[in-house]
Design a protein around this nucleic acid. Structure first.
Lengths: 235, 235
DNA sequence: AAGACTGTTTGCCTCGGCGCAATCAGCCGC
DNA sequence: GCGGCTGATTGCGCCGAGGCAAACAGTCTT
């Protein structure tokens, strides 16, 4: 079954390609659905394909030899992921899990070299993707080296909310389910500490949270926390 | 003055290019010397050029708004650096400082697109460079999230020694000057903690160290420390 | 050779954040 | 509607590692 070019025509990755190019690209792709919490690919598996997230949210998790988990990033709609080829790897360096029901386009790795050479705009765009992820990751190292846990968590929340926030009556809500444990794994801390901080912030009126849900009600105040520029309320 | 192609002919980055190509590449380059502790480029400056380290060692440092410094990486001989173009940036995201006297090739950014398109092997190689730095940086995040300071410092030392070690009678020596403060800035800790650990390791016979100098005398033992697989000696 | 400077060591104290454990609260399946 | 499960909260104790401070030791300058 052919895929319609309207699926991808508006994505930044494919900017500058005409309808004919888009059809050629889609001809090699397969569209599939991944239910919530299912695995798109696993760390260490042979990297046979690369992916584009059409809808939903994907969690990218790395597991250490000792079994510790770290969330490397969340993938948003329209982003490429599992591009092991771009990193010169033949296995996936992390596991990708659907945070909600997802729709994903899949290309076999054999399509990669052709797409790179035949569509320079696509090549440049994947280049930029890897480059910006490097920058984000370096910024994260910086954060972990110099900031305290409270600021790191505030920054992480702000980043998620900016990328995947949804406006509601109460504030900006993260539009996929996220647990305290998840936030802990993004910031290199424990779910206990995250829980304590979210509770404290809830008392201050900065966030509202519930099971697997976080709403930032006062983004400005959260920015102050992130910059360590507010006086702490009495305990 | 023309540069001889022998300067770069043996580098992996330019593998697969013939003598004529190398000459064309060198025609646009300028060679210059940077004395120890001098700055090749500074964080935030307009990225007008990119660089290749011919000899010496370069420290890449990021400074936070609050003034905290973090060492992102050390550049070894034969590596590209300051490739802001590859990250889609127009300013340098970090400062590069010569750790020892260095010889550096410099190209204006205007040469970048041409080199990318005219020498596909060069393009692929820069791609790999960015990709592998992303992987290293992600591994570092993982480390900082899951490991204790002692293991992180052991890992950092092992990495430096593998990349820039020089065999001596006593063991493997880091072949550029490195302070406790530097090691602290690589691992997100303080010079005090680094100093204490190095002293402890020296007592155990794992390392020998002096001012701005570290020699790993027992790499295997250091590996055990890195994996947290040794019983701690009595204090 | 004297002095200044930079880098290193070490003791002491403090405290942020982790580990543990018990309890609670939604949500799901039956 | 009733368990059972997963996720969230919170109190308590502890300890790894940072902050501070003082003393010390190479190295470079003049």
């Amino acid at each position: 079954m052919a895929l319609d070019r309207s699926l991808i025509s508006s994505l930044a990755i494919f900017a500058g390609l005409d309808g004919h190019d888009l059809d050629a690209i889609l001809a090699r792709a397969r569209s599939s659905r991944f239910p919530k919490e299912s695995e798109v690919f696993g760390q260490g598996q042979d990297a046979h394909s690369f992916f584009l997230l059409l809808s939903g949210h994907i969690r990218v998790v790395r597991t250490s030899p000792e079994g510790h988990q770290v969330i490397a990033r969340y993938i948003n709609e329209g982003e490429l992921f599992g591009i092991a080829m771009a990193l010169g790897r033949d296995t996936y360096p992390a596991t990708a899990i659907a945070a909600v029901d997802c729709v994903v386009l899949t290309w076999p790795n054999s399509a990669w070299p052709e797409m790179q050479t035949r569509f320079p705009a696509f090549g440049a765009s994947t280049y930029r993707t890897v480059g910006s992820r490097l920058q984000e990751t370096q910024a994260q190292v910086m954060e972990m080296s110099t900031q305290q846990v409270e600021q790191r968590i505030a920054n992480a929340l702000l980043r998620i909310v900016n990328q995947s926030g949804r406006k509601t009556a109460e504030g900006i809500e993260i539009d996929f389910p996220i647990t305290r444990q998840d936030i802990a794994e993004m910031t290199g801390t424990t779910l206990h500490t995250v829980s304590r901080l979210l509770s404290a912030w809830e008392n201050e009126g900065i966030v509202r949270s519930a099971r697997q849900k976080v709403i930032v009600t006062d983004p400005h105040a959260l920015l102050l926390v992130a910059d360590n520029r507010r006086r702490k309320p009495a305990p």
